[in-house]
Nucleic acid binder design. Structure first.
Lengths: 190, 190
DNA sequence: CGAGGCCTTGACCGCGGTCAATGCCCGTGG
DNA sequence: CCACGGGCATTGACCGCGGTCAAGGCCTCG
């Protein structure tokens, strides 16, 4: 079980044994049922998550009441409502489980205690920030330069598992299109 | 002259005297004429900049040949083509001077040497990454939830100096609209 | 079983992009 | 110093992508 985190971390950060155990202990296991809320609007995001099984999404709600899914995370990925996790401000983003989900959560305090006390973990945090920035930048680019269909094809190519496992409603909001146009795209695409 | 950097840095990072001088020496002064290229497409961005006077912009060119301005930086701000600066990969983004510009550049090597050797500078780098991420996130949000006019009003409120100092062509590409619609927005706005 | 949410399909429409014409400003060279 | 040329700004006519509204069928879960 914690075996899974250990295997994941090994690919990202070179932790030696004294710290490795500290890290493992810091991650607490939690389970959520499908559609269960993990973070509500207005709360500060106090956790950073590793998804062991299942899937969650991070989204916000526009003033017109539409959901905008910003991140989708399935098995074996890390995720958080990063803006709030960093800034300690109430989150505009909420988090819900898309399926029955088992995850491991590390608290903000434990996380940043590690950043301060462990050089390798600090590098890991920097890696998280750097990749998060680059990912966001690419997201702006694709949103601005590609049509709805081109964005769909891109996800089809890069994250085909999203299309299989995620409901159309959520996938549409992830692509910044409506459910209706996604439906039309899928049927026209042959 | 280096006085200006020192004053700027004081607001962001607590540098003590031995390091402060090292930092100051690392920043080399450069000047660019209006419309001069600072970074070309395909080059790796090897510098991080502090703008002393003038203004520059960071943009990329779509496959249809349209310019998309991603960042505008006037006096007293720091800027870079961050994705490339971080990843060391060729930049899709290019940088040009919008006005005659005097800036101070620190090289990638010097910058990351400081990150490693100076705790405070490392914190500064993390601050840069964190704010860059949050800024990008907000940018996606406004792009997705607001109409062209609402985005214009937002810049009007938060960065009125952009509207005065930046050409309509550049401002339009910054707002992700065409020159024509920007022109119409301005005239209709009363 | 029934009810509510999700998906699909159709009709309609509006925001903002494209194309084109004109005028203006500004830098450059004769 | 003026003449010219090219880039920028403005305005108008047009149009298409994708959103909205509405109706109908299906699946799931209580």
């Amino acid at each position: 079980m914690a075996e899974q985190i250990r295997a994941f971390l090994e690919t990202k950060v070179m932790l030696e044994e004294p710290q490795l155990s500290i890290v493992e202990v810091a991650f607490k296991c939690q389970t959520f049922k499908k559609n269960e809320q993990i973070l509500r609007t207005g709360e500060v995001c106090n956790n950073f998550y590793f998804i062991a099984s299942g899937g969650i999404r991070v989204y916000f709600i526009t003033q017109q009441g539409h959901e905008k899914t910003r991140h989708i995370a399935l098995d074996n990925t890390i995720i958080s409502a990063l803006s709030s996790f960093i800034s300690r401000l109430p989150s505009m983003e909420l988090i819900v489980a898309m399926e029955d989900t088992e995850l491991y959560a590390i608290s903000h305090d434990d996380f940043f205690h590690l950043v301060q006390s462990c050089r390798e973990w600090e590098l890991f945090y920097r890696l998280i920030l750097e990749t998060a920035y680059i990912t966001q930048t690419r997201r702006v680019e694709t949103r601005v330069t590609l049509s709805a269909k081109q964005r769909y094809d891109l996800v089809m190519r890069d994250n085909p598992e999203f299309i299989q496992r995620v409901s159309n409603k959520v996938l549409a909001s992830y692509l910044d299109i409506t459910q209706e146009t996604l439906s039309r795209l899928k049927s026209s695409h042959h």
